[in-house]
């Protein structure tokens, strides 16, 4: 088997706040192959966005810092790379991100054409007139209608869905190998969401990039992702093929998430919610962070964090229940 395009091992990104240390990302591992779509799922504060930012070497300043682990992209270690090297050779060029809120992700005082051309110029792929033409081409690629006429327009002249396309054009302008999409549709209307997901799939097919799709929406993830990783309190608690994960979830948290979803064709009375509340990021429970909410928790869960256990076919779970691989 070939080495994966991107391999993240035991990544740790902590936020050093006055009130204490938040272990926002606390030992995250996953791999990503070319053309693959990996869904990173979790509730707010579970560390999914922070994981995405860490891949770019952009944990929030000044509190955030990558304190351990490794990120290997095409055989090259990214953790510890110089800030300038990251900006010049990685961000936008090899890994790019589509951020969450299209209404605030574009610079209000530059035309969209200038903004899409900016990464091309910065990475020295094109200059001057050529960069402007390429930017128009990219805007066309993300299906912005009349791209040439509209490239001189400013963000406020576009709808939310169109702005998100412009953001996508900025991200793919330099043909990155890995595209991170951080809840790209949560600020959009449902019909526009569907259009944008279709666009993402089409772009991925065209460019062959790998996609890390960050969301809290299990339904959206199911429709788009090949594999899904579920995050809880800074850790990935379960990774599996989408089909396996939805069909036979192994971790009690994943099971709880799926039980709280309404499903077509399955008539059951009430939806069940996961008991308890997400943990305080400053004071995570000892052992498995999920144990206070887990219906199967034992003394062991309270004492030690479970290791990764490999079940069949790339299904990985962090739970003492599956210690023996069953």
């Amino acid at each position: 088997m070939n080495a994966p395009l991107l391999s993240v091992r035991d990544l740790k990104t902590h936020l050093f706040l006055r009130r204490g240390v938040v272990k926002a990302v606390d030992g995250v591992s996953f791999t990503l192959d070319a053309q693959e779509t990996l869904g990173l799922i979790g509730e707010s504060g579970s560390g999914k966005t922070m994981t995405g930012l860490s891949l770019l070497g952009l944990p929030p300043k000044p509190a955030g810092r990558i304190v351990g682990g490794s990120i290997v992209l095409e055989g090259r270690e990214l953790v510890g790379l110089d800030e300038d090297v990251l900006a010049e050779e990685i961000r936008g060029r090899r890994i790019a991100m589509i951020s969450q809120d299209p209404m605030t992700s574009l610079n209000p005082v530059f035309s969209v054409g200038e903004q899409v051309a900016a990464p091309l110029r910065a990475h020295d792929l094109a200059q001057g007139r050529e960069a402007a033409d390429l930017a128009i081409h990219e805007l066309g690629r993300v299906r912005v209608p009349s791209a040439r006429e509209r490239s001189g327009d400013y963000p406020h002249q576009f709808s939310g869905g169109m702005r998100q396309r412009v953001v996508a054009a900025m991200a793919i302008a330099c043909q990155p190998r890995v595209l991170i999409a951080d809840e790209p549709t949560s600020a959009l209307d449902v019909t526009i969401q569907v259009q944008f997901m279709d666009l993402l799939e089409a772009l991925q097919a065209e460019t062959g990039a790998a996609l890390l799709f960050i969301t809290h929406d299990l339904g959206v993830a199911a429709s788009l992702c090949h594999r899904i990783a579920v995050m809880y309190a800074g850790r990935i608690v379960e990774t599996a093929n989408a089909r396996t994960l939805y069909g036979s979830p192994a971790h009690p948290y994943t099971q709880g998430l799926l039980d709280s979803l309404p499903r077509l064709g399955r008539r059951r009375g009430r939806l069940t919610a996961i008991g308890g509340a997400p943990p305080d990021a400053l004071r995570l429970p000892a052992g498995c962070a999920f144990h206070p909410r887990c219906p199967h928790a034992t003394d062991r869960c309270r004492e030690a964090a479970p290791p990764e256990t490999r079940l069949d076919d790339g299904h990985i779970v962090r739970c003492w229940l599956h210690e023996d691989g069953s």
Partner: peptide, 23 residues
Amino acid sequence: DYVRMERAIGLPERAIVWRFALR
């Protein structure tokens, strides 16, 4: 968010500060 986006696509910090943010 837009400065974060500008960083995420690899614009040099100098350009972000003196051109994109300053305007």
